[in-house]
């Protein structure tokens, strides 16, 4: 299945492009997608599909638009 994954410019120190289309095996999860684009797992903050927050073990479907936000930082 094909999944579109968007990060943002903040992720460019890990990934080449901030939006990519990835072909993934069926029943892949959000976490698999994070790994697939080469983002360290602890750098992935909230993740959304179609604007709705999804947990990291959520199973992806063909055509999903997954957005990965950075973790919240601060003191």
């Amino acid at each position: 299945m094909n999944v579109t994954i968007e990060t943002g410019r903040w992720a460019l120190r890990y990934v080449e492009k901030d939006i990519v289309c990835v072909n993934m095996p069926e029943s892949s999860t959000v976490m698999d997608a994070v790994a697939a684009i080469g983002l360290p797992s602890d750098e992935a903050g909230i993740t959304t599909i179609g604007g709705k927050a999804v947990p990291k073990d959520h199973c992806l479907s063909d055509g999903d638009f997954l957005k990965i936000y950075p973790v919240i930082i601060g003191g």
């Binding site: 903040w10 957005k67 936000y69 930082i73």
Partner: peptide, 16 residues
């Protein structure tokens, strides 16, 4: 890089 203002978007997306 972006600094702490990087928080705006994830907090917004997460509803915080």
């Amino acid at each position: 890089d972006i600094g702490t203002p990087v928080n705006i978007e994830p907090l917004n997306a997460a509803g915080g």
